[in-house]
């Protein structure tokens, strides 16, 4: 099985770390580079500063657990989405903006690829872990806005990432699909199939 994780920032990098023992190959897709501030809020360390996030994460996963990632340091666009996702058995969307999410959603729906979305609000009060059939993109705010700043919401983002990883593992092992709404104080199982 090939799992493609699109976006390896605050959510995606944590998800990849939690999927280190999943029985699948993991491909990571992100055009961005690690900045010093990212090390406070994301699963990226100081040795990765200045490197593409997929390269830094690949090095970290290999160093810590011997896990090899397929690294794609590209911005996902409508021109390359087929090349990046067509062989994936599962897509995990951890993007930070509606236009890119739309590209992913259009592709997975057109090609019947299972897709799990992770999304949070800007204030770190609510997150959604939804399978695509129930996921509506909510275009508010600006790309990459303050959710990740200074690691303020790191614990909550890690909780959301844990639910993404849990739902992924349930799907890989049992083909079950759990969708959750997550807050700092409660979690609701919204859909199950």
């Amino acid at each position: 099985m090939l799992i493609a994780v699109v976006g390896v920032g605050a959510l995606g990098a944590q998800v990849v770390a939690l999927l280190r023992n999943v029985r699948a190959t993991i491909r990571v897709i992100d055009f961005d580079r690690v900045e010093a501030k990212n090390t406070e809020s994301q699963f990226h360390g100081r040795p990765g500063n200045g490197k593409p996030k997929v390269v830094a994460l690949g090095s970290l996963m290999d160093f810590l657990w011997g896990v090899k990632l397929q690294q794609r340091p590209h911005r996902l666009t409508s021109d390359n989405v087929r090349e990046l996702l067509s062989d994936a058995n599962l897509v995990i969307d951890c993007l930070d903006n509606a236009p890119s999410r739309t590209i992913v959603q259009n592709f997975v729906r057109a090609n019947s690829v299972p897709c799990l979305h992770g999304a949070v609000d800007a204030n770190g009060t609510c997150g959604r872990v939804y399978w695509d059939e129930r996921f509506e993109i909510e275009p508010v705010g600006a790309p990459g806005a303050a959710t990740c700043e200074n690691g303020e919401h790191l614990p909550f983002l890690t909780v959301v990432a844990a639910y993404i990883a849990h739902s992924t593992k349930e799907f890989v092992a049992k083909q079950r699909r759990f969708s959750y709404q997550v807050t700092p104080t409660s979690t609701i199982l919204v859909y199950a199939s």
Partner: peptide, 26 residues
């Protein structure tokens, strides 16, 4: 969220979720 008692873990009652918009993933 309509009730869905047919799946294990599915809701056995209808629910309406009101929450902040979630468009970020970082």
């Amino acid at each position: 969220v309509p009730r869905d008692p047919t799946h294990p873990g599915g809701l056995d009652f209808n629910r309406v979720l009101i929450r902040p918009k979630t468009d970020y993933g970082c």
